[in-house]
Structures are given as structure tokens and as C-alpha cells.
């Protein structure tokens, strides 16, 4: 999974896909996870990192991240890379 090039995210959670002209709004957790995806972190690294700071179980976190990624793919923000 990787994020499509050119996609810009502001800290306020505004995301613009310049290729399509679509814009989105994310909550802070959405911004954090998208940045981690951008940095190429694995699911495990993400869950570890978030659960250190937030009051959430690993299993819920894992489900939420998977669900979130599904939405990102649906919105054309993530694309499947060959080595996935």
C-alpha cells in the first residue's frame, strides 16, 4: 500500500488530491495514520506506536486501520503497490 504521489495533507486535516480535484477532511487520528502510511510504516509499527500513546486495544486498532485503509482505497488515495 502506498499513498498516491502529489497528495497533500494539512495539519488541520484537509487533504487535496490534485489529480482529481477532490478534497477530504480527516480527523487527527486519520491524519496521523496517513502520515505513517506515507512514511512507509507497517501495520505492526503503526499499531505499536499508536497504542503507546492512546487508550485502545491492539485488536480494535488493527481493525480500524484496515477499515480506514479500505476507505482510502475506495476514495483513490491509496494505491496497491506491486510488492504488497
Amino acid at each position: 500500500m502506498r499513498i498516491k504521489s502529489n497528495i497533500a495533507i494539512s495539519d488541520s486535516g484537509f487533504l487535496l488530491n490534485p489529480a482529481t480535484g477532490e478534497s477530504f477532511s480527516l480527523n487527527p487520528m486519520g491524519v496521523a495514520i496517513l502520515k505513517m502510511v506515507k512514511d512507509g510504516k507497517s501495520l505492526e509499527e503503526m499499531t505499536q506506536e499508536i497504542s503507546q500513546d492512546f487508550d485502545v486495544s491492539l485488536s480494535i486498532l488493527e481493525r480500524d486501520i484496515e477499515d480506514f485503509k479500505g476507505t482510502l482505497t475506495q476514495y483513490g488515495i491509496l494505491e496497491n503497490s506491486k510488492n504488497d
Binding site: 484537509f14 487533504l15 477532511s25 480527516l26 496517513l34 485502545v56 480500524d64 480506514f68
Partner: peptide, 21 residues
């Protein structure tokens, strides 16, 4: 130190008529 309250990640497409916060 207590952990921060978790909220699951969300993303919403901004529509012209988005009823925002």
C-alpha cells in the same frame, strides 16, 4: 501518565453541501 482518548481514524469527502462540524 494516562493514555490519550482514542478515536478511530476517519476521512470524509468534502462536498459542497457538507454539513460540517
Amino acid at each position: 501518565m494516562s493514555k490519550k482518548k482514542y478515536e478511530r481514524p476517519s476521512i470524509k469527502r468534502i462536498e459542497n453541501e457538507m454539513p460540517n462540524k
